[in-house]
Design a binder for these strands. Structure first.
Lengths: 214, 214
DNA sequence: TCATTGATTGACCGACCGGTCAATTCGAGT
DNA sequence: ACTCGAATTGACCGGTCGGTCAATCAATGA
């Protein structure tokens, strides 16, 4: 009986909701200020629970930090993996669409970019493991396109993926600052220019005559 | 008299040396762990002086942080500015050489990359102001090259500079991690591949026939 | 209905935080 | 030789830190 446990709000106990509220508060604060600059008392206040309750659910401050990273990363990871495995036939627009989707994802999840940057700075290994798999997946698709003659073959596929990841993520990492940069455009204008250069530079036979070569 | 004040080492007082020792310790620790995670006691121990002495020379922890950033950034800024203002005739290798020099600078000063990343995350304005000037300087040179017909003219010069800055700095920002990335190459191999794609993508007339255009 | 279990609370702990201050110690000008 | 100011020290401050603990409180199964 009492199947309708969902009817109560805030009046009764709901450990799952509590957990997720703490997680959300942790996500917001850690993304904003970084792990070291956030206090347990701050986390408690933001999530509307007691400090002890956070310890009850997550053990230590590091425990909560790990849970926050885990949750954010698994969301990111699943989304990206689905997109990468979605298409199967290599066509000339596959890379273009992949870049655009990646750019859009970061655009809609700027907090994730900040979180990953904090993780990178503290040499978090979780980050690198999952990243490695995604990059490998993307690199495989680039190699397929190269073998199909759709992309120039004289560049390392992993580097191709790395370059576009860098160009996208760094854009959002420093975006709060470059609004004062002289002549800089909007997200979309940047993406458009990047795509022009990147795609043309990757076209087969792009090693044109004006290169002084080696 | 007593002109040879340099003969004494550690025996006598040397406020300048003390200052620079504290600055160095601050640089190392802040780069490594970020501002919030470093304690005054840690800084004192690392620099071999008393905690009170740090307060005497720099006022507060923030004061030292500012001094560290100031010192690092002015070194970076002067170096980059010299290079950008050095050459004056726009030639086809100007951008290529500029990118390479920027890449080499980051390669030799990986700590600076970390420092700037910490600054970005805490929305430090010092960063953006000086960055803005450097980017504007670089963008001007790109525009000159465009007007001379050496680079494609249908892309925003500021975006061109932004893209290569991102591709270089993000590479070193995440470098500790991507050693496990499948198939990734060395610094130089990455730079080489990036230059291929970037320079060919920027060549005039790069908007080739295979683009489905718009 | 009642015992059990886990959610939740507030009081409390020792450690450490950044910062201050009065007291010393040196170096340099006179 | 004396003085004055800066460099340097260690003791000390109030406050905050992350974490613990015993005690309540509410749901749940027997």
């Amino acid at each position: 009986m009492i199947v309708f446990t969902a009817m109560n709000e805030a009046t009764t106990r709901d450990p799952d909701l509590t957990r997720s509220r703490i997680l959300q508060a942790g996500f917001e604060l850690f993304v904003d200020k970084g792990f070291a600059a956030v206090s347990m008392r701050e986390l408690a206040q933001r999530s509307g629970v007691t400090k002890s309750l956070i310890h009850h659910h997550f053990g230590t401050k590091e425990g909560l930090w790990d849970a926050v990273k885990e949750a954010a990363f698994s969301r990111y990871y699943e989304g990206q993996k689905d997109e990468l495995e979605g298409a199967d036939a290599p066509d000339s627009n596959l890379l273009r669409n992949g870049v655009i989707r990646y750019f859009r994802f970061l655009q809609e999840n700027p907090q994730v970019v900040r979180l990953f940057t904090w993780m990178h700075l503290e040499n978090d290994s979780t980050c690198s493991e999952m990243d490695a798999e995604l990059v490998a997946l993307g690199a495989r698709r680039v190699r397929e396109a190269q073998e199909a003659g759709l992309l120039r073959a004289d560049v390392n596929p992993t580097h191709v993926v790395t370059i576009f990841i860098h160009a996208c993520s760094q854009w959002f990492e420093v975006r709060p600052q470059h609004k004062n940069w002289e002549g800089i455009g909007s997200d979309d204008e940047y993406l458009e220019d990047f795509m022009k250069i990147f795609m043309d530079g990757l076209a087969p036979g792009a090693a044109g005559p004006e290169t002084d070569s080696n």
